[in-house]
């Protein structure tokens, strides 16, 4: 188990390094980083100081090391827009993003998993068909369309909720609904197929043939086994929380990381873009790591192969 955890940790570290390298390479491809990151009207001394600090006069290998060093300490330079450190700008947006993504995650899990289990246990029922139809919609409808439809109904037609902004609880409802319902449908679909797969296994039939009650078969055999693939998709959703918020935050003018990213990309505020890239990468990597470890905990086989030697 220990070497399993260590090898996953190494992989996680490697992914982060990959993202940093990716940003470094793409940034170098695009021209002189000093001119790109500093604003056009920055004084020449400031540009020279930036070059000195980031080692831009050094050979490329030293630049790379300096870049990694800066990135590891959270120093991505200053935002072009107001001159504040990019990391501070990004960090102050984190709570707003979590304020809509965490309730949305709860909605996905709390609605999606029970719906999926119910659909699997009542296969081909009306509820099952509805779940599947909803999940197709969840896959094929882009979040901005769903968001605008919700706005059209709840803000424009009914006038119950604000169409955008961040004034209290009521303005969070539509973003959370947008993020949550699409995800819940996808979640339900995966839970359903995981359950159906498990229910088709011989050991389930063996257990029911032995005379164990169906309720016990489901709770003792089917659910724990179906949990394993379900954890993967939950982890994937946790990992892509922030990424998924990019569009939705922009539609609802919600002041989170996603909207910051969009405006930073539009204004080519590269320090901020890099910083957000790293924050999202770190978040993804941690989510994947958690999934891997949960896997090891849930599935003795994964642990087993690692511990066999």
């Amino acid at each position: 188990m220990l070497s399993f955890a260590i090898s996953r940790l190494l992989r996680a570290g490697l992914t982060i390094l990959f993202v940093m390298t990716f940003a470094f390479v793409v940034l170098r491809l695009s021209g002189d980083p000093a001119l790109l990151i500093m604003s056009v009207d920055a004084p020449p001394e400031a540009i020279a100081a930036f070059r000195e600090s980031w080692g831009l006069n050094q050979p490329i290998w030293d630049q790379y090391l300096a870049y990694i060093g800066h990135a590891l300490t959270g120093d991505f330079g200053k935002s072009m827009r107001d001159g504040r450190p990019a990391i501070a700008l990004v960090m102050e947006r984190v709570p707003a993003t979590l304020a809509i993504t965490l309730p949305a995650l709860a909605l996905k899990i709390g609605l999606g998993i029970p719906a999926g289990i119910y659909a699997a246990l009542h296969r081909n029922s009306m509820a099952d068909r509805l779940t599947m139809a909803a999940s197709v919609a969840g896959f094929t409808m882009p979040s901005f369309v769903l968001a605008l439809l919700l706005v059209l109904v709840f803000a424009v037609q009914l006038g119950w909720l604000p169409a955008s902004g961040s004034n209290g609880l009521s303005s969070a409802i539509l973003p959370v609904l947008t993020l949550g319902t699409g995800g819940a449908a996808i979640m339900a679909r995966f839970t359903r197929s995981a359950m159906l797969e498990v229910l088709g296994q011989p050991y389930i039939r063996a257990a029911s043939a032995k005379g164990v009650t169906w309720r016990t078969v489901v709770t003792h055999h089917a659910l724990p086994n179906a949990a394993i693939p379900t954890v993967t998709i939950v982890g994937f959703m946790v990992g892509s929380l922030v990424a998924g918020a990019v569009v939705v935050e922009s539609v609802f003018s919600w002041p989170g990381i996603g909207r910051l990213l969009v405006s930073a990309v539009a204004n080519r505020d590269l320090a901020v873009v890099q910083c957000i890239l790293m924050v999202i990468a770190a978040w993804m990597v941690m989510a994947n790591l958690a999934v891997d470890l949960a896997y090891g905990w849930l599935d003795p086989r994964v642990r087993g192969t690692a511990a066999a030697h």
């Binding site: 990716f22 990424a243 990213l261 957000i276 890239l277 999202i280 990597v285």
Partner: peptide, 21 residues
């Protein structure tokens, strides 16, 4: 492949658009 699969492509695409125009 691992790298591509471990980052949401939307984010990578946004970063590339920011860097390269």
């Amino acid at each position: 492949i691992d790298f591509q699969a471990s980052m949401p492509f939307m984010i990578i695409a946004l970063a590339v658009l920011a860097f390269l125009g």
